[in-house]
Simulated assay, not measured.
Amino acid sequence: MADYILEQKDSFHVLGIGTELKSHYTDYAGITKEKADFWQAVTQEGKLDTLKAIASNDYIFIVNEAVNNKLMHYVGVMTEESLPEADRVIQFPKGEYLIVKGEAKTADELHQTLTGIAFGQVLPEAKNFAYVGGPNAVVEMGQRNDLLLGEMWIPVVGK
């Protein structure tokens, strides 16, 4: 099984700018393209820089959340401020989180790798805990030696 830890976190919130993913949740290629198109748009339009300017730390959250039976995808930051262009304040619950750490050359590679390990390896093999919904996020945490460092945070409950 892939390396992971379980960690207790206090509740927190992330201010996000998002999009609805229209591809079926099993359409990996479709979802990947939609996420890449969204990421390119928020970067080129300066929305990511606007979020970073009000962030309370250097973390960038790439959040997936089911809202009103829609699969939503957000880029967000921890902040106490608000923005008119922000779509949602995403609440993460207090509790236990599955944490998968990694590094990659690009943000897209980091997101895909951590998501693949967490949902493709760790959660299917887990015997003592399970993901039962709620927002999950890839958290970009900085760089070292030309690699982007990050973690996947998924709220879990004991089985």
Score class of each variant (00 low, 15 high):
Asp87Gly: 00
Gly18Val: 04
Val132His: 13
Val139Pro: 02
Glu81Cys: 03
Glu140His: 02
Gly30Lys: 07
Asn68Thr: 04
Arg88Asn: 03
Tyr25Met: 09
Lys35Thr: 04
Val42Asp: 04
Leu149Tyr: 09
Val89Asp: 00
Ala36Phe: 10
Gln121Asn: 14
Thr19Leu: 05
Glu125Lys: 11
Phe61Tyr: 15
Val156Ile: 11
Val14Pro: 11
His111Arg: 13
Ala126Val: 07
Glu20Phe: 06
Gln91Cys: 03
Asn128Lys: 15
Met1Cys: 10
His13Leu: 11
Leu21Asn: 04
Thr50Cys: 09
Lys35Arg: 15
Glu81Phe: 02
Ala41Leu: 10
Leu15Glu: 02
Thr19Val: 14
Val42Ile: 15
Met72Thr: 12
Thr26Pro: 03
Asn64Leu: 04
Val100Lys: 01
Ala104Gln: 05
Glu45His: 09
Tyr4Gly: 09
Lys101Pro: 01
Asn145Ile: 03
Glu85Asn: 02
His73Tyr: 15
Phe12Met: 08
Leu51Trp: 04
Ile5Pro: 13
His13Ala: 10
Thr106Arg: 05
Tyr25Asn: 10
Gly133Tyr: 14
Gly30Pro: 00
Lys127Thr: 13
His111Gln: 13
Ala66Leu: 10
Gly46Gln: 11
Ala130Met: 12
Tyr97Phe: 14
Gly158Ser: 10
Thr32His: 11
Asn128Tyr: 10
Ala126His: 14
His13Tyr: 08
Thr106Ser: 13
Leu6Lys: 15
Ile62Ser: 13
Lys70Ala: 12
Gly120Tyr: 05
Ser11Leu: 10
Leu15Ile: 02
Leu48Asp: 03
Gly134Ala: 06
Asp108Tyr: 08
Met141Thr: 13
Lys22Pro: 02
Ser23Met: 09
Leu15Val: 01
Pro84Tyr: 00
Lys159Asp: 04
